[in-house]
């Protein structure tokens, strides 16, 4: 493209942006959504991505440590799978809250404020950071915030944080190979035939 054409383009592009503003649609309105500065509308779909590849992450070392401790309180190791932090789930949560897309800034505030609250609450109750608590102390706090419908008024905000954090932890965990195995996903392999549910499933459902 020569310079003159380039300038002409920039001017028309600027004019259409101005027109959008004038008609003042919100960003999540149909048709006029403001383009985010993310991976763009035509990213390489075959590549494998890691948190931090596309945009800068947010957590400080202390926030990451608190996040890891909470991740493992939500998803600890057991016989069927490892803990969330051992699969780098905190990095995914960081990627999520740092993303330049609609809604993620709000999640960032929820998560960062929540982690700050968690350490303050741990200090208040047990004179220690959340990471320094023993399991029963962590559970004492989590029991108060793990169910939004039942949380006492003073814990409403913390419960909303916990809910969001648990959802992210689960999403981060169950999408890893270990997490997929843990939850019992056995697909994503080519098969010669699709035979439907096996006899033991049909039997259990009363469909045999």
């Amino acid at each position: 493209m020569d310079r003159r054409t380039a300038i002409k383009w920039m001017l028309t592009a600027a004019a259409s942006v101005a027109a959008l503003r004038r008609d003042s649609f919100g960003a999540d309105e149909p048709g006029t959504g403001a383009p985010a500065v993310g991976y763009g509308t035509d990213p390489d779909l075959l590549k494998v991505y890691k948190p931090g590849d596309l945009w800068q992450l947010t957590f400080t070392a202390a926030q990451r440590a608190t996040a890891a401790a909470l991740c493992d309180t939500i998803i600890p190791a057991d016989a069927k799978g490892p803990s969330a932090s051992s699969l780098k789930v905190p990095d995914f949560i960081d990627e999520w809250i740092s993303a330049p897309y609609d809604g993620h800034a709000a999640d960032k505030k929820t998560i960062i404020d929540g982690l700050t609250w968690l350490d303050a609450e741990a200090q208040k109750r047990f004179k220690n950071d959340f990471t320094g608590l023993i399991a029963s102390q962590k559970n004492a706090i989590c029991d108060d915030i793990c169910y939004t419908a039942k949380a006492k008024p003073e814990f409403t905000k913390a419960a909303q944080f916990f809910k969001k954090f648990r959802d992210l932890t689960a999403g981060g965990y169950y999408t890893t190979p270990e997490g997929m195995k843990d939850i019992g996903y056995v697909g994503n392999v080519p098969l010669a035939t699709f035979d439907g549910p096996p006899p033991e499933v049909l039997k259990k459902l009363g469909l045999a």
Binding site: A27, A36, G38, A99, P177
Partner: peptide, 16 residues
């Protein structure tokens, strides 16, 4: 490709 290999675990964005 699994969702774990994608940005944001493959979640929706305004770009995709």
């Amino acid at each position: 490709q699994t969702n774990g290999q994608a940005p944001l675990r493959g979640g929706n964005t305004t770009d995709k």
